[in-house]
């Protein structure tokens, strides 16, 4: 039975050798909502996001993203989901324009959107400059433009505010709002609770790979503890 909610995990576990990064995590993110993952370093937030993005396979348990199984239907998951990790994943030897054209070609979007996206990200003046000369914040803005290009139904963000100024943080907010408005779901892991609080509808607190608390009721407590 295919789950209706955009993100569902059941008893999800992931080991790296002897280290257990996730232990039986069960979550459900509903349409049009954003889930904030909180917890100390090494609590399993990034591992959970990477399993949902199909970058890692779960050791045990199951997960569905956009209604598709992350193991047996990984290619379908990648059609509906975008993961933005801590690395912006842009090519230093390409210009901002070229990076976005590459993204457009790879995800089957028209290249004519690229100039508009560069303007949205505030990168128009450096569109034809190699991204190797960009600051971290500028590279992250470019990565955000790439996310916007893909218009995902499910958005997975790992520390999206790192390196961004207030304008850059506003781009993250716009992306999250856009996904929620389209009836999608966002899972966001960050230590910047101040910025994340305004975007999220629910909070899941992880520690040592375990889910300690989950749900809107625990929002304030979890955020304050995480």
């Amino acid at each position: 039975m295919r789950p209706l909610d955009p993100v569902v995990t059941e008893a999800l576990s992931r080991r790296f050798g002897a280290v257990v990064a996730l232990r039986g995590v069960g979550l459900r993110v509903r349409e049009g909502t954003c889930l904030l993952l909180v917890g100390p370093n090494g609590s399993g937030k990034t591992t959970l996001l990477r399993v949902l993005a199909t970058a890692l396979r779960p050791t045990e348990g199951r997960a569905w993203v956009g209604g598709y199984d992350v193991v047996s239907e990984g290619h379908r998951v990648r059609e509906v989901c975008v993961y933005l990790g801590t690395s912006p994943g842009v090519y230093a030897g390409l210009t901002g324009f070229e990076n976005l054209c590459l993204a457009a070609d790879l995800c089957g979007r028209p290249r004519r959107q690229v100039p508009e996206l560069l303007a949205w990200a505030g990168l128009e003046p450096v569109a034809y400059t190699l991204t190797g000369t960009y600051s971290l914040g500028m590279r992250r803005r470019l990565a955000l433009a790439r996310v916007r290009l893909q218009e995902p139904r499910v958005l997975l963000l790992d520390e999206p505010f790192v390196g961004l100024d207030e304008d850059g943080a506003r781009l993250v907010s716009e992306l999250v709002a856009g996904v929620k408005d389209r009836g999608g779901a966002v899972v966001l892991a960050t230590h910047d609770h101040h910025r994340a609080r305004a975007l999220c509808d629910a909070v899941a607190e992880l520690d040592s790979g375990r889910l300690l608390s989950y749900g809107p009721a625990g929002l304030a407590g979890a955020v304050n503890r995480g």
Binding site: A53, T54, A55, H75, R78, E79, V82, Y83, G85, S87, G89, V90, Y91, A92, A103, L106, C107, G108, Q150
Partner: peptide, 14 residues
């Protein structure tokens, strides 16, 4: 070296 492999692999498509 550039940390771009994961992003490349996570694009939709075969």
């Amino acid at each position: 070296e550039e940390g771009t492999l994961e992003a490349l692999l996570l694009y939709p498509g075969s």
